[in-house]
Each structure stands twice: as structure tokens, then as C-alpha cells.
Simulated assay, not measured.
Amino acid sequence: MEVQCDGGRYILFKERTVIGQAVLAGDRITGLAIDPRWRRHGYGSFLLKELLRRNGGYDRAAPSLFYAPLPRPDDAAALALAQKFGFTVQGDALCRRRVPDLTAVELSHRFLRDSLPSGGLYLDATCGNGHDTLFLCGLAGAHGRVIGLDIQQQAVDATNALLHDNGMSGIGRAVCCDHRELLRFAPPGSADCVMFNFGWLPGADHAIHSTAGSTLPALRAGLEALKPGGVLAAVLYSGKVIGSSEKQAALDFFRALPLKDYTVLICEFANWSDTAPLPCFVLRRQH
């Protein structure tokens, strides 16, 4: 089977025969139909799922919204198909609304979005594939500046490409550098935010990952870089590959910080596993 898109019309082929179609106009799905000879074989599910997938309906990191007309009262199969894919009755239409899953990284983004001013200096100390760096560029705005750091050139290149593709090269850039050396780019007391997302580079060799030996000096440097009122954000990981020594060392470091200088938040997902990512925030207090 194959689905081809012609404008907003999605056409389902079985070999070379058209057996179904649907239309997407904006956020409204209409005209979903399967040739009667091919009904009750899962082809309607295949077509609807593919239409949703191609338009962000299964993107865990972004919201999505779709509407469809209510089926006829006697069309129980059409209603069952809609309900299978999360549509519910809303007024005189069907509605499928999804919001992003609350992950450790998404929680960090929400906290920083609500806590930081635009126009400052932001550091992504572990830029990876660049998604956190891109997020910080959006926070920094046209008058801000973002520096992404990573020890792997592959990560630096991916980050700079992502910033370029999203029109953010004038705000942010990534450089190949150990995060322990971040004070080269943010003198003491100059940064509004220093962000860490530890672990390994997604899509790369998992044997290459951050360790306590590099993480603790980097965290110390990050705190030194913060200006009063600045925020250090860190997502900590543990598991079979990387163990738990880095996570535990970072937690011990955070908990030992003096209250007169810092407010520390460690946000636990209480009903997740013990190895779930752990978002942490350190706020440098203003005296």
C-alpha cells in the first residue's frame, strides 16, 4: 500500500489501484472514503494514520489539532474509526487535540521560558543536535546571544546547520569545546542561563557520554558564569549504559550549594522509573 499526497488530497493505492482518499484543508479532514470493495480490511485506519503522521499528529514534542465532520448516526464504523484515533465529539464536529508530552527536557524549557528575560547571554553547554540551542535562541530574541558547546564536531555541525535552517545564525552559534571551558565564552557573572542536557549525542555512539569527571567542573564553571538572578538548568540521566555515578555526583553537588547564594530545585517524576531523566534548576540569588 502507498499513500500519495496531491495538494491536500491524500490518495491510497493498493498496487496501482486507487482504493481510498481523504482531504486535509488546514486542520479539517473531509471526504475520507474507502472503495466499498476494500472496506473492513484496515485500509481506512492505514490512510487516516498516515495523514495524521505526515501532519504532526504523532509528534510528541508539538501540539496538534484536527477536526472532522460527524458521521451519520447510522455509520457506527466511521465513528469507531474516529474514536480509534483519538477523535471525540465536540459540538457538531469530531476533534482530535494532542498536547506535547511533559518530558524532563520540556519541563526545563517551560521553566526557563517563564523565568528568563530576552536579550541576554545564554549558554547551551551540551548542544548535541542543537534543539536546546535553538530553543534558547528563541528566548534570547534578536538582541540576545546564544553559544552552544559540544566536544564532538558532529554535534557542532548539526547545531549550526539547525540554527541556519531556522534563521537563528545571527543570534546563536555552536563551537567545539569542552563544557568545562565555558568561561571562555561567558565571563564570571555574565550569563542569564547555562543549560546542560547530559548523556550522549542522540544518534551517535552511546559509548561517548558525559561523566562525573567532566560534569562537576562544568557545573562549577556554569555557576560562576551566572549573573545574579540567572538560572542553571540540568537534565541528569542514569541507566545501563552510563550507570548512575554522574547523576549521583551532580545531585550531591547541587544539594551542598549554600542557601545564601542559591536556590536549588530537583524535580522528580514520582511515578516514573528510578532511571528516568531528572530535571534540576539552580537559581543564583540576588543579594
Rank of each mutant, 00 (worst) to 15 (best):
F87V: 02
I242K: 06
V231Q: 11
A33H: 02
P188H: 05
M1L: 10
G167V: 00
L51Q: 04
Y262N: 07
G44R: 09
A218Q: 11
G26L: 01
P217H: 06
D101Y: 13
A221I: 03
G31Q: 09
L219P: 13
N129R: 12
I11F: 14
D35L: 04
I147F: 15
L182M: 09
L24I: 04
G239N: 06
L116F: 08
V156T: 12
A68F: 02
T17W: 14
Y43R: 01
H109K: 15
G148W: 14
R110S: 07
S214Q: 05
N166W: 01
R96F: 06
G239W: 00
V194Q: 07
V282T: 12
L223G: 13
G56E: 02
H109R: 15
R97D: 07
Y10C: 02
D261N: 14
S45M: 03
L232I: 08
F281T: 01
L182D: 11
N166C: 04
A161G: 01
G170S: 13
R255W: 01
E15V: 10
F46T: 02
V89L: 11
G170F: 15
L219N: 06
P117K: 07
S244W: 03
W38F: 13
E181H: 15
E106Q: 13
N129I: 11
G8R: 13
A78L: 12
L116D: 12
W200V: 01
A68G: 07
Y10L: 03
G141R: 10
D150T: 00
V194L: 12
A270Q: 12
L112S: 13
F253L: 08
A25V: 04
S108E: 10
A125S: 12
G7Q: 05
C127A: 15
G167D: 01
P117V: 07
A77E: 13
G20F: 10
F66D: 05
L107W: 10
H209Q: 09
K49H: 13
N166H: 09
P187I: 05
R98F: 15
A186P: 10
Y237W: 13
F198T: 10
G26F: 02
W272I: 01
G144F: 07
G239A: 06
A22V: 05
S64W: 02
R284T: 00
T263M: 12
L51K: 09
S45Q: 08
L201E: 00
M168L: 06
G20P: 09
K227V: 02
G170E: 12
E106M: 14
L251C: 11
D35Q: 09
C193I: 02
M195E: 08
S118Q: 13
K240F: 02
P63G: 10
R97T: 00
R96L: 05
V3I: 15
I147M: 14
K14H: 15
L257Y: 00
R284E: 02
G119C: 01
L94A: 07
G56L: 02
A233D: 02
D101N: 08
N160R: 11
